[in-house]
Nucleic acid binder design. Structure first.
Length: 266
DNA sequence: AATATATGCAACCGCCTGACC
DNA sequence: GGGTCAGGCGGTTGCATATAT
């Protein structure tokens, strides 16, 4: 009855990921796709919790991640979305291609929050800090239209990209590409050398590494209930990695080679 | 140069929701 | 219908690095 626990806790490694672990995870996902995170550590030969693997992949190893600080447009977008959505970081992240909820959350807490406070704006309510009478009133207005003055924020006035209603929102991918040169030069140089190593041709092609039972992989997958089509469902990632074009078709529009493919030279 | 403090970020923790048995 | 689990999310922590004294 029920299911097996996600991980047995005992013998599960915690703390920072090593290059070797990253490599195993990347190799595994590139080969088999992301599915059933619970099974990933075992199949990939990792002594990690599936949850930890998922987090590592989504927040750090995914090839479509942008790196480096958020640019002004992105920051303004985060502020605007936060005013409407509150701390729903995943929803906010969904509007910023290549950014993760964790990254946005961290950036909010370390940069934007302070910036807003410095400007006299309450980062929670998006109201001016010196709210005269009833502080509760301000709290209740969290999800209403905030008194956000772009001029006050000293950010580009028309970094818009935000339609009047949340539903009609369209991601600012085009504008990102105009920032490419800047963000590439900034964030490109920020690309973690470890990431370069992990995504390097030699590194990835070294499939000798391995998976505990390479020969029985098919069997294990079918045991887990994966169809071979599911198994191949992430072949796009491999294609994606190899092709270098066609990024748009994956919804990664506006990403430069440097953003999504550290295999490039820099 | 050594130490203290601040900052930034990766990773963990705990809770919630939906799916499964 | 109720219990259990996986996956996802937001909050928090801990450590490495940067900056100040």
């Amino acid at each position: 009855m029920g299911r097996q626990p996600c991980c047995d806790k005992l013998g599960v490694k915690k703390g920072p990921w090593t290059a070797e672990e990253d490599k195993k995870l990347v190799n595994f996902i590139l080969t088999h796709g992301q599915c059933c995170w619970r099974a990933v550590p075992k199949l990939a030969g990792l002594r990690r919790c599936g949850k930890s693997c998922r987090l590592r992949w989504t927040n750090y190893l995914r090839p479509d991640l942008k790196r480096g600080l958020l640019n002004d447009d992105e920051e303004q977008l985060v502020i605007d979305l936060h005013a409407r959505l509150g701390n729903r970081w995943s929803k906010i992240a969904a509007r910023l291609p290549g950014r993760t909820d964790n990254e946005i959350k961290n950036h909010w807490n370390t940069h934007i929050k302070k910036k807003l406070i410095k400007m006299g704006i309450d980062p929670v309510t998006h109201e001016p800090l010196q709210k005269p009478d009833n502080p509760q009133e301000a709290t209740c207005q969290t999800n209403d239209q905030p008194n956000l003055d772009p001029k006050q924020l000293e950010l580009p006035k028309d970094c818009g990209h935000v339609s009047s209603t949340t539903d009609e929102f369209s991601p600012p991918t085009e504008n990102f590409s105009t920032d490419e040169s800047r963000s590439s030069s900034e964030s490109g140089s920020d690309v973690d050398p470890l990431i370069n190593l992990i995504w390097s041709e030699a590194f990835l092609n070294d499939l000798t590494w391995n998976f505990p039972c390479p020969d029985s992989r098919e069997l294990e997958y079918s045991e887990l209930g994966f169809s071979s089509s599911e198994e191949n469902s992430f072949s796009w990632l491999l294609d994606y990695q190899n092709s270098g074009d066609d990024h748009q078709s994956f919804g990664f529009g506006g990403f430069s080679e440097i953003d999504i493919n550290p295999l490039g030279k820099y």
